[in-house]
Simulated scan of single mutants.
Amino acid sequence: MITDTTFDITKTTESRIDQVDFDELGFGRVFSDHMLEVEFADGQWNQPRIKPYGAIEVPPSLHVFHYGQSVFEGAKAYYVDDETINLFRIEKNYERMARSCERVCMPFVDRDTFLDGIAALIKVDSRWVPRKEGDVLYIRPFISAFDRVIAANPSETYRFYVITSPVGAYYSKSVKLTTSQKFIRAAKGGVGDAKFAGNYAGSFYPARKAQEKGYDQVLWLDAFEHKYLEEVGTMNIFVVIDGTLVTPELGGTILPGVTRDSVIQLARKWDIPVEERRITIDEVIDAGKSGVLEEAFGAGTAAVIAPIEEIHHNGTSVTPGATERGPVGQRLYDTIYDIQRSRTEDPFDWVRPIDVSK
């Protein structure tokens, strides 16, 4: 039960919602009225506060600016009706964020603060959850080092925030991918399976070079042999080869995506053959050439199920049989979409409803 004694709630005196064009949201450009803030100092987390969204005043010596000690997550809230907003597998986001924090030597808030804090924030800003079909409220939890000293060791103070943003579709069309033989995303023993801010910063330059060549994202290969598929910049990758759904196995270099896990569980429930294994880029190219690469798509919280229309590697491009969502990808998209909005059976109890009527 959320109470004002658990969360110190200060509401804005003037909402900005009437200034927002909900028909032209884009992604991550508009932010809701409030945010959740929790400070860590003297070895413990202080009382969580929900307060008006706004600037944070910090000094140039702030630890995170210099050493990058920061972790984040991505989730969404879905409009069901005027009384109910759904969260989807939010417990998985908590578990992954806790693992990510441990990997980069950061404390993390307890489970109740994370889950109930997000629910309390959604209740306060429930009007910001888009009603338009396909649009959602994006949820961005993040934690950063907040020491005011320049020292190359773990910070002793931190702040955990949750901000929210009404958004439209992340990808509006099928995507084109290219591999990189020069750059890598992660290596075993590194932080590739953590949602660590630096992972993304390091990928921006290769992604820009790919975009200059007409591609949307980099399809990352392994760090040592440069031949095994890993993931795409913003999502896990799946291919359907001769009726079998294949995705790279987790091994410490790939982010364990929430949508990835959902896709695998649903496909197995439907008796679709699923393989989590090492798969080479040559196998994908050969499948494309021989006509058995039936579908390719990315899966992620932001993208959901994003169809892939081209995969390029070393001067050779292949096109899947379906350049939009194929039968498998479309069924997965439709089912996940409907579960998130309580329009179909939720066989795995993935949805966490929030009563916003009170």
Rank of each mutant, 00 (worst) to 15 (best):
A169V: 02
A207V: 13
E230M: 00
Y171F: 09
R208L: 15
F196G: 03
F183S: 05
Y228W: 05
E156M: 14
A187M: 07
K173N: 13
L219N: 12
F146C: 15
V162H: 05
L245P: 00
A186F: 04
D193N: 14
A152N: 13
A145R: 12
A152Y: 11
T179I: 06
F238E: 02
S165W: 04
D222R: 06
V149K: 15
E231M: 10
E249Q: 15
V246M: 12
E231T: 07
P248D: 05
F238M: 08
G198D: 05
M235F: 08
E212T: 05
G257I: 05
T247S: 10
Q181K: 13
G214C: 01
V167H: 00
P206C: 04
G233C: 13
L177F: 11
F224C: 12
A186T: 07
G252K: 05
G190E: 05
L245S: 00
G257P: 04
K195E: 05
Q217E: 15
Q181W: 10
K209Y: 11
A187Q: 08
K176C: 07
V175M: 10
D222F: 02
D222W: 03
K213H: 11
T247A: 09
Y171H: 04
L229E: 02
V240C: 01
Y170I: 00
Q181C: 07
R208K: 15
Y161D: 05
D222G: 00
L219G: 09
V149Q: 14
F160K: 05
G233P: 08
D147P: 05
A169W: 00
G202I: 06
A201E: 10
A152G: 12
I184S: 03
F196K: 07
V232S: 14
Y200L: 08
P256L: 04
G189Y: 08
K227F: 07
A186W: 05
S165Y: 01
A169H: 02
S180L: 10
L177R: 07
